[in-house]
Design a protein around this nucleic acid. Structure first.
Length: 350
DNA sequence: CAACCGACCTGTTCGC
DNA sequence: TGCGAACAGGTCGGTT
């Protein structure tokens, strides 16, 4: 669930909690949480080093480390080593005192010399923690220590002041795919996931199945503008608290401002026609088929997807289930999620 | 290059 | 009431 705004919030919250903390030990509860799978190598690399900054790149939380100390206690030069944390869907980070009670979902712990711990909690075990390097020239993340895969190149940061509408349009011109998967392609643009892709496309009045090549003048800059506006507001509001997302210093409130995500069947805030849900690239996609038109050229390839669209009037009596009824479940789901988050926080509070 | 699928995981919710 | 299927979705690797 965490996308750019949520990960940014976690990185910012952590800054005040872990900058200056020196790593004294590592505890691994689920081996595959470590990208390299090599606990000893990870320990050797990070124990004795101090976290000097926290940041975000794409959907990665980045903990920047100093050079640590050599055998004789002499400070070692900064080699740009960083710890990378990908929360994937259910990852959470907490800072607590050592010995605080913990539940069975703690997958990795960084112990600090001051008696506190950074705990990575992840119900579904998809999250990954690794080691990488900050390239002194480009400033971007490089490689992976310990035999893990290298990061594929991340695209530009949508909120980077240097990322202009012109640069976005230029990038768009190089691609031919559909807009929704394109926005979520981390090598095209960094940090956008399912929620904010849907919101931005609706705000820009562009159909998720629209091909990038079919955009008319003015549309790329509109998409650029809406995407930045929504991501910016979401960062201000500390992200959307949906399902398992929570930040070290508390939930966000952007979920109250989401206009189409998980709102299939509800009236479109712009035209009042019912919002639709389709599956694109295996992911739920929410849009308004009136406000977000598909040009004839894009229709043939999209026909099979659009045929499975819901909600369908009068499908209650018979026929296969085509998907959950978000309209009726949204509230209950969100309440359950809030309860889950509260429990998670309580179990980490110590 | 683009699209799609299965794998990775567990908890929740749904239909029967 | 219980049971199994569907679903949530970020990313990677493989195939078409």
């Amino acid at each position: 669930m965490p996308e750019l705004p949520e990960v940014e919030t976690v990185a910012r919250d952590l800054r005040g909690l872990v900058v200056g903390a020196r790593v004294s030990g590592v505890r691994v509860g689920w081996l595959r949480t470590l990208r390299s799978g090599d606990v000893e190598a990870f320990e050797r690399a990070v124990v004795g080093r101090t976290i000097v900054e926290t940041s975000r790149r794409a959907k990665l939380v980045v903990l920047e480390l100093d050079g640590g100390a050599g055998p004789d206690g002499v400070p070692m030069p900064d080699d740009g080593l960083v710890i990378t944390i990908h929360l994937k869907m259910t990852g959470q980070l907490f800072v607590v005192r050592a010995g605080a009670p913990e539940d069975p979902y703690i997958r990795l712990v960084l112990a600090f010399e001051d008696g506190r711990e950074l705990r990575f909690r992840d119900i579904r075990k998809f999250g990954r923690i690794g080691l990488a390097w900050r390239d002194p020239v480009s400033g971007d993340l490089r490689g992976e220590l310990g035999g893990g895969r290298t990061f594929k190149g991340f695209g530009p940061e949508p909120l980077d002041p240097g990322f202009t509408a012109r640069a976005f349009a230029r990038r768009l011109r190089l691609r031919r795919g559909r807009l929704k998967p394109l926005l979520m392609d981390q090598s095209f643009l960094a940090g956008v996931g399912n929620i904010y892709a849907d919101e931005a496309l609706w705000a820009a009045r562009l159909h998720p199945l629209r091909s990038a090549a079919s955009l008319r003048p003015g549309q790329p800059s509109r998409l650029y503008r809406e995407l930045r506006r929504i991501l910016g507001e979401a960062v201000e509001r500390r992200g959307s608290s949906i399902d398992d997302y929570t930040a070290p210093e508390g939930d966000g409130e952007m979920q109250e401002r989401l206009l189409v995500y998980q709102r299939a069947g509800e009236p479109c805030p712009r035209c009042s026609r019912p919002l639709r849900r389709i599956v694109v690239g295996g992911r739920s996609t929410h849009f308004c088929s009136w406000c977000q038109r598909l040009p004839p050229a894009d229709r043939s390839g999209a026909a099979s997807i659009l045929r499975s669209m819901e909600p369908r009037p009068g499908r209650a009596a018979a026929g296969p289930r085509t998907g959950p009824s978000w309209t009726e479940l949204g509230g209950a789901t969100r309440r359950a999620a809030a309860t889950r988050r509260a429990l998670a926080r309580a179990s980490q509070a110590g």
